[in-house]
């Protein structure tokens, strides 16, 4: 890997980690586990469309591990890992179908897949089917949060292109 490429990945990871930690400071008005804006995924969405699959996976993995350490919630790592893995695989596949102008749509599916992965992990860990009741709320919040992060990524793309010139 070229040093310049590595530096770019490192900057993107650092930025997503900063966004992640700032988001932790915003109080969450919804008392449902798994509901959040996921602003750090703006970087994930951008990376999926501009970097190779394994490079994006590197950014997300480092973000997840460092994020859970800095956030002080290591026990939630199982859920976020399951969610992120499913989200990443789904978005890398969707990249073939959805072009960059519709990146927000890709982001919506990514968010819904993320919530689905979280839910599956929670069901497996707790062995309680009743948790499924949270899934509809997660679907709604996933669609809205995914739309928001996707639109943010869409605003980001021309700006990053300008910086890179």
């Amino acid at each position: 890997m070229k040093p310049k490429r590595l530096a770019e990945l490192a900057v993107l990871t650092a930025v997503s980690l900063i966004i992640f930690i700032i988001e932790l400071q915003i109080p969450n008005p919804f008392p449902i586990p798994g509901v959040k804006l996921g602003l750090a995924n703006i970087i994930t969405v951008y990376a999926v469309y501009h970097y190779k699959a394994y490079e994006t996976a590197m950014i997300v993995t480092v973000r997840l591990i460092l994020g859970s350490v800095f956030g002080g919630n290591v026990s939630a790592l199982i859920y976020s890992t399951a969610g992120s893995a499913l989200c990443l695989i789904g978005m890398l596949l969707l990249r073939r179908v959805i072009d960059e102008r519709h990146i927000w749509l890709s982001s919506v599916f990514g968010a819904v897949l993320h919530n689905t992965g979280q839910m599956a992990a929670a069901l497996l860990v707790t062995q309680t089917l009743g948790l499924i009741a949270y899934y509809p709320f997660l679907l709604v919040s996933g669609c809205l949060a995914g739309l928001f992060t996707g639109l943010c990524a869409q605003l980001l793309i021309p700006r990053i292109r300008k910086i890179k010139k």
């Binding site: 749509l105 919506v108 819904v112 509809p136 709320f137 679907l139 709604v140 996933g142 669609c143």
Partner: peptide, 13 residues
């Protein structure tokens, strides 16, 4: 499909 997921989510909620 995305709209359908959203509506299903609201109905479920």
């Amino acid at each position: 499909a995305a709209a359908l997921i959203f509506i299903a989510g609201i109905a479920g909620s």
